[in-house]
Design a protein around this nucleic acid. Structure first.
Lengths: 112, 112
DNA sequence: TCAGCATATGCCGGTGAATGACATATGGTG
DNA sequence: CACCATATGTCATTCACCGGCATATGCTGA
């Protein structure tokens, strides 16, 4: 990771895990729900991201259980994951505020 | 998919143009300023993004002048560009809010 | 009965934005 | 005159995301 900013799918994935542990497919549905149906996470993105986030230590396996003779892994945020998500949310919120502020500045009175 | 969510450098670039027209190098400095020195836009990213955004019609050449016998292009947001930036800001702000809300929810075990 | 869908996990080739390094040119400062 | 800020640009590489495919189970309905 070359310190590149987190993209939307990843951010939504972490957000989906922020309130309670979820397994892969449940994350995908939750992401779609959070984004108002806008972001439909592909399984390639999903499991790739999970693998990456595990290695980065932002998430961890919460539980492994066998359901219908198939392994189901449930993931949860780690403490660094919570911190990273909070920082990321703060950062993009600040950018969004600045964008909105500047748009308002010329869109209106300033006419300069 | 060209529908892919805008990344941070691009978002900051548009934000840098939101209050007034700027030329390339000025955008780079402004982006660094907006992000609190966190994002130092490489020229590869910068001019590549400018080219892309021009083709997408989100920005346009505002003025072309010769300074020190060199061409300097000044860019500005188009109407679709302003709309796109506003929509993007709205969208990421909503995601940030949701992330923050969920982090707060379990951090205190729903104490409210 | 079995086709089709939701559930569920996972792989892989391709795309494209961002990175990092390089190239070039001018004007001002130590 | 070396060096830095200013200023614009190219290009190979990297890597997250996309889209499609594979696989497997349980349920529902024609």
């Amino acid at each position: 990771m070359t310190d590149r900013a987190m993209q939307e799918p990843t951010l939504l994935l972490l957000t989906a895990l922020a309130d309670e542990p979820r397994h892969g497919y449940a994350i995908a549905r939750e992401v779609e729900s959070i984004s108002g149906g806008r972001v439909k996470m592909r399984t390639g993105t999903l499991y790739g991201a999970l693998e990456r986030l595990l290695q980065q230590g932002l998430i961890e396996v919460h539980k492994e259980e066998v359901v219908d003779s198939r392994l189901r892994r449930t993931y949860t945020l780690t403490a660094p994951g919570r911190t990273a998500l909070a920082a990321e949310a703060e950062r993009i919120a600040a950018t969004a505020r600045e964008a909105t502020r500047r748009l308002g500045a010329t869109g209106k009175a300033a006419t300069a």
